[in-house]
Design a protein around this nucleic acid. Sequence first.
DNA 1: CCTATATGTTTAATAACTAAACAAACTATT
DNA 2: AATAGTTTGTTTAGTTATTAAACATATAGG
Lengths: 414, 414
Amino acid sequence: MTSQVKTIGLFSFSMSVKQRYDRRDIRRLNAVSVLNQLRTNGPMSRAMIAASLGLTRATVSNIVKDLLQVSVVSETEYNERGTGRPGLLLNLNPDCGSMIAVDVNLDHFAVVLTNVGQDILWRDRSPLLRNAAPDQVMERVVKLVEHAVKLSAKRNLRCYGICVAWAGLVDRDRGELAYGPTSGWEHVPLKRHWESRFKVPVYVENEAHAGAIGVHHFGPRPGVRNLVYLSLGVGLGAGVYVDGVLLRGKQGFAGQVGHTHFLDNGVRCGCGKQGCWVTEIGASGIERKLTAAGFTIPGKVNSSVDWVDLIFEQAQAGNPKVLLVLREVGSQLGAGAALLVQTFNPSMIVIGGRLGRAMQLVQPQIESAILSETLPYMIEPLEVIVSPSGEDHIQGCIATVFDSIMKNPPLTGE
Amino acid sequence: MTSQVKTIGLFSFSMSVKQRYDRRDIRRLNAVSVLNQLRTNGPMSRAMIAASLGLTRATVSNIVKDLLQVSVVSETEYNERGTGRPGLLLNLNPDCGSMIAVDVNLDHFAVVLTNVGQDILWRDRSPLLRNAAPDQVMERVVKLVEHAVKLSAKRNLRCYGICVAWAGLVDRDRGELAYGPTSGWEHVPLKRHWESRFKVPVYVENEAHAGAIGVHHFGPRPGVRNLVYLSLGVGLGAGVYVDGVLLRGKQGFAGQVGHTHFLDNGVRCGCGKQGCWVTEIGASGIERKLTAAGFTIPGKVNSSVDWVDLIFEQAQAGNPKVLLVLREVGSQLGAGAALLVQTFNPSMIVIGGRLGRAMQLVQPQIESAILSETLPYMIEPLEVIVSPSGEDHIQGCIATVFDSIMKNPPLTGE
DNA sequence: CCTATATGTTTAATAACTAAACAAACTATT
DNA sequence: AATAGTTTGTTTAGTTATTAAACATATAGG
């Protein structure tokens, strides 16, 4: 497998194009297809897999022999129904290894350890003060990750990877935290450091991109090919799938739409411009609006977002000031989202992120704003969803590691 | 070959993912790699290809034998320099077949016949009156295409395909002209009709997408991975490459940004909304502005764009009224383009389409508008270009057919 | 002329597939 | 209970595109 650097160019077969193929690649490609069948179509016998893929049973048997040996796949039980010899059902082995997800946000970080079956084995989270020293933050994160790695080892699980979702600009290929407008981190070569420290593959994703991956895999329509995920928090970013592909862009900044122009004479934004979308509906915008409406946030420290739960409760209790503010934010969220709908033509738009939950209360406002600003034929197939989980970033990390196993399973003899 | 809903995604050969692989696929994939080498790295000997791809000379010889037999590749001359036996150089055979490009715009249509070497063998174009009856238009287009097909046959060229760029919504997979807001065409199954009539593969592309493909292949930076192409004419659409992949979207409408909200109390648009971007800088917008500035367009018929050349001359001659209007349009074009830059993070933005040429005169206005509305780290790598060719759509069609040969070359025994 | 070097072809070995035969396990029927 | 019919999973022989290595060919240079 060679990653091609030259201007190969003119073919749009994406980034790394294999140049040279031999028999081993057939095996690998077919093994991937087998795993995908098992993943999407539940437990299956060798014969069922063969029939669905168009391979012979002999071939599938051989591939499965490999996969059993590395215990990525396990035999479960006999198929009962039907005449003839019952098939021995196979499934992905949930306990063939572990995966670690890390979410480093602006006001907290979380670490999750799961098995390959995505059952949570351990998790922990910890708050972060704004303006905390980058080195100290990193030290705390590393400590938790180390704990997860040790737990995995104690259970004799092979750790298939660590994926970090980070609220900043990410150079995914190099595995670097490239630029953090608020965290103070710049060019942190996380992949290199952690891989040499933990001896495990490390992946880095932008926060909103991770959220999109999470919804793409574990959301209400797994595998949805055209999806806009809005991550609403201190910052505002979007992760976008078009035609089943996640957009990253030249610098990994595709879909990072928080600083698009939204209001003609709006508040000046930290980025230097006036009237950015994020200054209206991001955390600081909501705070400003609450204050202007005469609602004081008790015990507020810095520009953290500890007050989300409080606001949510107040709104549910019917506090008119809070409701008024949330409704306005909902409309503005929808108006901005309309642009994204027009631009990306998705079939689903998901509101997530730290503040996403609060938007559940104003979904009508969001939807009507989108409707009024969009061409009818664009929204005909559109679903608007406020993510209930709040775990999209973490789930995206899990999905990233899981995908790496599916796409590049360990095979014998390599 | 089955079309799969979930992303297996070892290959981003777009939507349909192969599930089953055997030895023939190795041959096919390696043949594609060989063609790619020849295409990008000029004439090469078998040994050079083998070295660059990491295949053995024996393998390359076998593949080349196939490709020679179907005459996709031809032997040219001996390599001179260097010691040792000189290699016999190979190249893509420009005369192994023909390709047909069709551009159906709102005010004209054009048909071009080229050989695989992209030399133009024949071309013709014809004006279209607005509101022409769809059936009549189609009949005229078909007549020209038929002529091209016959010319190709007369030269004993195998026609590898016909690609149509069309100013409307396209269902590319089905090969349908799905929805034409102005042409009156709806659900025209062009692929099915023409393929049964001409016995040749038929591809359909949206106009702006075709322009983007054209620039991506034949523009100043062939193979540029992140590109926004703006097609400015009666309508306004964008074709966008992100990470080397052209965005199409759920209904093929990704990047069709003409009807995004641009002005708060703008003119009412044909789409029903107010202040769409296209109503400001599209053909009708420019006409409106010219009239308001006291400049009357002589001999104007309908809302066609015959006046482009006239306006261009007037502006070059220094007509202050025309210049004033063009400068305003340039600024508004830039302001809208800034949104696209923020959203897609491209390294190049190209202004093309029927009216693109006129924008050459106001490039400074476009650039400064983009600059003032975009975050600095977004535009650092950005090139702004006004397409000089005016043939981007046609070139995109040619590239589409050419790519289909490269990705799926005819091989012996199939 | 002989040696060194590089090209392109031939030959044998290998790997992963298919097709077809076979053994195993269960159901249905007589 | 015995037998026929199905379906599964494995085995065996055959095919094919690859690699590695040997070979024939063509040029340069001392």
